[in-house]
Amino acid sequence: MIEHAVTDRLFPGFRKLDIATSGTTIRLRTGGTGPALLLLHGYPQTHVLWHKVAPRLAERFTVVAADLRGYGDSGKPATDAGHTPYAKRAMAKDMAEVMSALGHETFFVCGHDRGARVAHRLALDHAERVRKLCVLDIAPTREMYAGTTDTFARAYWHWFFLITPAPFPERMIAADPDAYWLKKCGSGSAGLSPFTPEALAEYLRCFRDPATIHASCEDYRAAATIDIAHDDADGDRKVACPMRVLWGQHGVIERCFDALELWRQRAVEVSGRALPGGHYLAEELPEEVAGELEAFFG
Results as ranks from 00 to 15, higher is better:
58 A>C: 03
106 T>W: 00
5 A>M: 13
6 V>D: 07
115 G>Y: 01
167 P>D: 14
86 Y>V: 12
266 R>E: 07
80 D>G: 03
38 L>Y: 01
233 A>V: 14
114 R>L: 01
186 G>H: 04
295 A>K: 08
81 A>V: 12
218 E>D: 12
233 A>R: 13
233 A>T: 09
120 H>M: 08
141 T>I: 14
252 V>P: 12
146 A>Q: 10
102 L>P: 06
147 G>T: 12
54 A>W: 15
184 K>A: 10
236 D>N: 08
237 R>P: 12
228 I>C: 15
219 D>E: 04
95 M>I: 02
261 E>F: 08
118 V>H: 15
226 I>F: 07
5 A>D: 14
260 L>W: 11
282 A>E: 01
2 I>H: 15
270 V>E: 06
88 K>V: 11
287 E>F: 02
9 R>E: 13
293 L>V: 15
262 L>M: 10
162 L>C: 03
54 A>V: 07
83 H>Y: 10
94 D>G: 01
42 G>A: 02
220 Y>L: 04
285 L>E: 00
117 R>F: 06
136 L>Y: 00
282 A>Y: 06
204 L>D: 13
141 T>S: 14
165 P>N: 09
252 V>E: 11
195 F>Y: 08
240 A>G: 13
209 D>H: 05
298 G>Y: 11
236 D>R: 07
27 R>P: 06
79 T>Q: 03
219 D>H: 04
31 G>T: 14
54 A>S: 12
289 V>C: 13
233 A>N: 04
19 I>T: 12
241 C>E: 13
65 A>F: 04
196 T>G: 15
109 V>A: 06
253 I>R: 06
6 V>L: 01
79 T>S: 14
156 Y>Q: 11
65 A>E: 04
143 E>V: 09
42 G>K: 01
194 P>K: 05
46 T>Y: 14
48 V>K: 04
215 A>C: 07
65 A>T: 10
94 D>Q: 07
216 S>Q: 06
145 Y>K: 08
196 T>Q: 03
102 L>R: 04
135 V>K: 10
20 A>D: 01
153 A>G: 09
245 V>F: 05
265 Q>Y: 11
164 T>Q: 10
231 D>Y: 12
263 W>M: 01
22 S>D: 11
127 A>I: 08
7 T>K: 14
160 F>S: 13
84 T>A: 02
112 H>W: 07
251 G>I: 00
21 T>A: 06
207 F>G: 05
234 D>P: 08
7 T>Q: 05
31 G>M: 15
16 K>E: 09
224 A>F: 09
163 I>Q: 15
266 R>D: 10
14 F>V: 00
24 T>Y: 03
109 V>H: 08
